[in-house]
Amino acid sequence: MKSLDDLKKIRDAAQSKVNMRGKNDGMRVLVGMATCGISAGARPVMNTFVEKIAENNIEKVTVTPVGCIGECAIEPIVEILEGDIRTTYCRVDVEAAERIVKEHIIGGKVVLDYVIGKYRL
């Protein structure tokens, strides 16, 4: 098991990198994490976003769990906010999350296969 000493090493390494991010500037990824989202599989989706973004050292992107927006049938819903631009993805699974990180967050191109308009409610 990794001990608190290991955590101290991680802290010291991170301090030398000096890439403390501001909280709400830049892109925001909102993952629906209410009962509907959780039972549709939002937990692994959110963890994929968090891990992929951290792994690729992408700065100024925050991933946040949010409540339900009332379209429970098409959960897991993920919204990406960039300034005034809002992209809503629905029925996101781990595979879709990986694509969104790669193509949208890194590549800057909306992944049309999963945007909300593609599905009939």
């Binding site: 990794k2 955590l7 390494a13 991170a14 301090q15």
Partner: peptide, 19 residues
Amino acid sequence: VLDGIPFTDYNVIMWIKNN
């Protein structure tokens, strides 16, 4: 211990999960 290092750091996330 983290002393200001955010929970979003990749190694911190992995440490927490592993722990």
